[in-house]
């Protein structure tokens, strides 16, 4: 059986405008000689694969390339170099096939916030041409498992809490029964209870349906709890990739008990705050 996800030498470069500071006439004239745009390697020749049913974590600070990688897999970005396949389908040449197999939850629960949860789910169901009777049953099952009260499902999403919105985002992604679920910081900003409920649901979904999951996060406990393997990304490159236990033993050969936070610091020289920003502020 082919890998759920294969990424070979994938590279994505962006050209971003340089900041031009006000200064003396001479320094401003000199600045004009420098190109207006600078090149940023968002994803720098990454090679990895994810097995079917695996939960693969990508751990890194904001701006390290996590979301760019997810968007490359989601067919929303074209890689500049390399090749990415989802269950054997190329994300560039077979976009349509790949889109049938994937779905995604992003850090911001992107909805038509004036619409209710059910109206948003209905929109998704129609886009994916899901059978009307079947999708409503599936949605009811998922929403119940996520602990969402049915009386809230007909209220505009803008009136619901962030935790509830994010749970509905998870329900929307799973409504289409994706073989590969891309979770881009799905629990950022959630309260501890909602965070645990979403994490439990991801584990349950994998156990029930064998869903493959790629999870990006800067939450070390979350990565430790959910992931079979973890890649640590910094400046668009994987600086390490192993099981949580394997990563810990890399920095603690004597078998001392270390946390993923310590692993991350040892491998990147950075500590993460709750919002994903490294404490030394070294974010591109």
């Amino acid at each position: 059986m082919s890998s759920a996800l294969e990424c070979h030498n994938a590279r994505k470069v962006f050209y971003v405008k340089r900041e031009r500071k006000n200064g003396s006439i001479l320094s401003r004239l000199f600045a004009r000689l420098i190109p207006k745009y600078k090149m940023v390697e968002a994803v720098d020749r990454l090679t990895f694969h994810v097995e079917p049913g695996e939960i693969f974590g990508i751990l890194g600070p904001n701006g390290s390339g996590k979301s760019t990688l997810i968007r490359l897999i989601s067919t929303l970005l074209l890689p500049d170099e390399g090749c990415i396949t989802v269950f054997g389908h190329d994300v560039v040449k077979e976009r349509f096939q790949v889109r049938k197999l994937i779905n995604r939850v992003s850090v911001d629960a992107a909805f038509f916030k004036g619409l209710s949860a059910m109206e948003n789910l209905s929109y998704t169901a129609r886009l994916y041409d899901l059978d009307k009777g079947a999708w409503q049953d599936t949605a009811a099952d998922i929403l119940e498992r996520l602990g969402l009260k049915t009386d809230k499902l007909h209220e505009p999403l803008e009136d619901l809490s962030r935790g509830m919105q994010q749970k509905i985002a998870v329900a929307r992604a799973l409504l289409t029964r994706p073989l590969l679920l891309l979770l881009d910081e799905p629990t950022t900003g959630l309260d501890p209870v909602s965070k645990k409920e979403v994490q439990d649901f991801v584990l349950e979904e994998r156990a029930l349906r064998g869903t493959t999951v790629v999870l990006t996060t800067h939450d070390m406990q979350e990565a430790d709890r959910l992931c079979d393997r973890i890649a640590i990304i910094d400046y668009g490159r994987f600086v390490a990739m192993d099981t949580p236990g394997g990563l810990k033993s890399q920095v603690s050969p004597n078998g001392e008990d270390v946390t993923l936070e310590e692993v991350f610091f040892a491998l990147t020289g950075k500590r993460l705050k709750d919002n994903g920003k490294p404490e030394n502020g070294d974010v591109r």
């Binding site: 889109r99 038509f112 886009l127």
Partner: peptide, 14 residues
């Protein structure tokens, strides 16, 4: 503006 562009455009829809 709504923030839904990525979801609408990654749906398997011509």
């Amino acid at each position: 503006w709504e923030g839904t562009i990525e979801y609408s455009f990654m749906a398997p829809m011509r």
